[in-house]
Design a protein around this nucleic acid. Sequence first.
DNA 1: AGTTTTAATCGAATTTTTAGATAGTTAAAA
DNA 2: TTTTAACTATCTAAAAATTCGATTAAAACT
Lengths: 326, 326
Amino acid sequence: MQQPLAQINKLTLDQLLLLVTVADSGSFSAAARQLDRSQSTISHGIATLEAELDVQLFDRSRRKPVLTPAGQHLLPQALQILTQIRHLQSDAQRLAQGEESAVSIVLDMIIPLPVIIQSLTELQARFPAVRWLIHTEMLSAIAQRITEGSCQMGLTGMLPRMKSHLISQGIGKVDFVYVVSTQHPLAQGNTRVSEEDLAAYTQLEVADRAAAPQVPLRNPQSWQFADLTTLLGFVLAHQGWAFLPLHLVWPELQAGRLTLLWPQRREHLCTGFSMYSLRLVSERPGPVRQQFMQAFQKHFQAYSRQLPSEAMLLEHFKTQDLSSDH
Amino acid sequence: MQQPLAQINKLTLDQLLLLVTVADSGSFSAAARQLDRSQSTISHGIATLEAELDVQLFDRSRRKPVLTPAGQHLLPQALQILTQIRHLQSDAQRLAQGEESAVSIVLDMIIPLPVIIQSLTELQARFPAVRWLIHTEMLSAIAQRITEGSCQMGLTGMLPRMKSHLISQGIGKVDFVYVVSTQHPLAQGNTRVSEEDLAAYTQLEVADRAAAPQVPLRNPQSWQFADLTTLLGFVLAHQGWAFLPLHLVWPELQAGRLTLLWPQRREHLCTGFSMYSLRLVSERPGPVRQQFMQAFQKHFQAYSRQLPSEAMLLEHFKTQDLSSDH
DNA sequence: AGTTTTAATCGAATTTTTAGATAGTTAAAA
DNA sequence: TTTTAACTATCTAAAAATTCGATTAAAACT
């Protein structure tokens, strides 16, 4: 019983266009002028449509044709179908220009989320037809997702061992700092802490679930987390110290809930880690991914400027040192 | 800048059908078999579609074609458009068989609403494409709406003076009874009331806003209402007696909030008034209105059977008389 | 290696679409 | 009332498209 499906091809989009144009312009002749076709074509086309639907669409008893009730009922449907055709054509045109129909991205958790949100908001307006698939992973799990093909591009702070099928590109730096809860013993004394002081307390660090199990942990006294938010919660609950992205802890530092630590062996208070975009060599990015990267870098720079510079951070370190000396 | 609209006719529904069928059947040849057309037709059609959209839809490097990402993106849109075409054709077929695209009805307020709701529920399932327009009026306002053309059909208890352009048809009877609040003075004495007793108290009756102002009111002591619900509210508030449809007051009679009155001059306790359907001679009803009337009569009869018969009503009258004699 | 299934291509026949000319009708202008 | 302008339906011939059948080459299965 697929007969109606086979009869679909009897109906023509052109006929629907005629119906809409005639109803819009008010007469067959006007429609002919508007479509730059002969009047007889319009007349024949409407007649054919009426014959195929077995319904009279226009009442021709007057000089200008007027829609019958049936015509009034079917006109909006025809209009909607034409609109959808336009959308299909528009989408096809975008695809023809290399625009991706769907973009999948893996984000490292250390990527500041506001930057992603700003970038996607901007891109969504420019490419409304694109479907976005956003994953979040940590460390080597990002490169793994790219390699296995489940994501087209990744943003990460961890550059994997050079593999021939991967292409990486620097996109900016993220500052990392040592922090501990203000109530933690480490925050009570001199915050220019020694390696031994650090080793004496638990380190809260990130687990690399994708990499091989790390038998020789740098710090035997470390707890591992697969989620930065959870990790930060433990830090705030005075469970240990951690080495975290500045943008993640800066609000807490300002609120006085966290204290900066400066290991004696470290030359600088904060350490900049480069961020990279990753993709397969074969998965050449289309305009959507290219413009996403541009938008990301733009918003990332603006975001970074809101964070304290190293000089400002030093200032913050000194004032916190003074207050804790009391 | 209506160029894209002019290019719509380059695309063909048949091409979209080919896309969908090939994607569904798995190969050009299978699609050809399914559509009962030659394989070269399918091949040519898909090639034309790809050329017009400027996008490759199928990857032919293997034996069987597989959808490209672009094809995957456009396939659901094509499918949806074909579905809408089917809907349009289905609606056209209904219209061709005389099915109304919209039905407008005026209801007299004395028509029991549950019957209307049941009828419309039944019809909506059978004619999902029909739009319903329901008005509610009273007395001569119903015939007026039909005459002026703002409604196609009406259900009323008031048969207008025979007019040549109107056609009426009996559809059942509604029993009317005299009622008064149980706390009203009329309910205290003998409820086989005299005409003089009735005239001594206020009558609450229906106003005919469409008819000419009724200068000579039957009862000088009457208040008029344009809404039955409001009227009933006044009756329940002991403001006077009224002559109302039994179905409207029966719940209140059972609850003991209202008392039946039986004027001495009346031979029967309740008076049956015929209900009529009205329409213009020129507005010949299609299948929707015809089946609506059938459904209405069916549900109206079922509804009437739930109401007390005259014998049951007499029983009720006697028991209420006994209790009020105490 | 041989067989089957498949898609692209080409040419010819068919069907559909289109424009132009004409006739007949309606509505507005004179 | 007459005249004029604008409109639709219809017919014909030409142009355009669709379709099929046959053929070729490639892919997958036996």
